[in-house]
């Protein structure tokens, strides 16, 4: 299989890329990792007239934590870069937990973090992580840059609020308000398959008290689900078995999965509740830890 014909452009600056997008109009498409776009073009689900390949633009492959704790991921950071960045285990535990679960090891060498957000597949792992972390996408267009919260960025399945002449240049995770914990769990029939269900959790704590929480759900609706009420159930108090169970129930309730060959809707909701509970329980401080924190 091969794609239908297109014009191929290789800009060397972001400005040039935006100019090409502007000229190409709605018929132009950015190529970053291409691990979703190229299969879709081969299957003729997508037939862009112009491909703007940004892989030759220098300076987009950065990932860095600012001095204030803000974490920035450039448009050409591949999944494997995040997987290999062992320092993220402490500073970005949700992202570190998801990095080795995205697609399969070979797809991860090409696919990009920002590209995955822009693809807006309800099955995308990164969008759930970014929802849990209250992250955003920085889009650059002819009129300059704007920052869009991930929840607002995704309009629906495979649809974002990006204008045709805007390029998503980076993703931003805000600094933590307290000590950050997080995790990601995904059930898949085999590696590389779409998720039966996935759950991203990020919490921030001052002492034992949860000051902020976010929960994002993968593959259980027509878009990434922000389980706000579930997250709110654990905020303002220490994690307890009761609040954790309530968060699990609320996350399952807001899920809107379809019954399919991966499992019934009830089964998927059950998985969501189990994963939320499992993740939050793993973040409960042990008795010794919480004493230490109080002493500190």
């Amino acid at each position: 299989m091969y794609p239908s014909r297109f014009k191929y452009e290789t800009p060397s600056t972001v400005e040039e890329a935006i100019g090409l997008l502007h000229d190409g109009g709605a018929d132009a498409k950015i190529l970053a990792g291409g691990q979703s776009l190229i299969p879709m073009m081969k299957l003729r689900f997508a037939a862009p007239g112009t491909i703007v390949d940004i892989n030759n633009i220098p300076g987009l492959d950065y990932m860095r934590t600012e001095s204030d704790g803000t974490f920035r991921v450039g448009a050409l950071v591949r999944h494997v870069d995040l997987e290999r960045a062992t320092e993220l285990k402490d500073s970005q535990p949700t992202i570190a937990a998801a990095a080795h679960l995205v697609a399969d090891p070979i797809v991860r060498t090409r696919g990009t973090f920002v590209g995955s957000l822009c693809h807006a597949d309800p099955q995308g792992d990164w969008a759930s992580c970014m929802v849990a972390l209250d992250g955003s996408v920085v889009a650059q267009g002819p009129k300059g840059r704007r920052t869009i919260g991930v929840d607002e960025f995704v309009k629906g399945p495979f649809t974002t609020v990006l204008a045709p002449d805007e390029l998503a240049v980076e993703a931003v995770v805000p600094k933590a308000q307290g000590v950050r914990s997080g995790g990601y769990l995904k059930l898949e029939r085999r590696i590389g398959d779409f998720a039966t269900a996935g759950v991203a959790v990020a919490i921030e704590r001052n002492g034992d008290v949860v000051s902020r929480a976010g929960i994002g759900l993968t593959g259980v609706g027509s878009r990434t689900i922000n389980a706000e009420e579930a997250a709110a159930a654990v905020v303002g108090q220490p994690l307890t078995p009761d609040t954790i169970e309530r968060a699990g129930d609320l996350a399952a309730a807001i899920s809107d999965p379809r019954s399919d060959h991966r499992g019934s809707a009830d089964y998927k909701r059950h998985i969501v509740a189990t994963f939320v509970t499992r993740l939050l329980t793993s973040m409960q401080p042990t008795r010794e830890q919480s004493t230490e924190e109080r002493v500190a």
Partner: peptide, 21 residues
Amino acid sequence: GACTVLFDGEPVKSCTMLAVQ
């Protein structure tokens, strides 16, 4: 993954990259 080749030392699926890349 049958079409896996090394691209600058990293494994890639060569059916999912354009030759021009």
